[in-house]
Amino acid sequence: MTRISVKVDGTTYEDEVEPRLLLVHHLRDRLGLTGTPVGCDTSNCGACTVDLDGVSVKSCSVLAVQADGCAVTTVQGLSTDGEWTGLQKAFHERHALQCGYCTPGMLMAARDLLKENPRPTADEVRHALEGNLCRCTGYQNIVRAVLAAASDEEVRT
């Protein structure tokens, strides 16, 4: 067992974990933060995407021990005082989700894109989301939502 300290959505958690514990299982099974789901076992689907020290990662392909001392932001830490982020609003308004299982990962991947490229083209949005699979939407409304969030100063806050 290895002792780790990980800050998740603003709260620091110290735990003894097996080295093989995946970050996503640490979040889900140990911390009860089940907003981040698991969709595959090959890091293809991206449903488990979180922010690790400022960049998007697939939390199924990171060990919890590798996140020791780091800060994690999950979909559950996006809104502040119940106020949604511009991306969350845009996903709602553009019908960018159906079953919602890929949504946490999509939001985190899109957020990462907009941090690095605040005014992406549709093509850049599609490439930025290539590691996040959705089976419901055909992606068109997700792309629209990300572009809307990027272009709407008011929504972006």
Binding site: P37, S79, Q88, H92, G100, T103
Partner: peptide, 21 residues
Amino acid sequence: RLRKEDARLLTGQTNWTDNIQ
């Protein structure tokens, strides 16, 4: 109409079967 379902799904307040403890 915008969907009533979205609020939970967008904020991670979901109840997938694997979430159940």
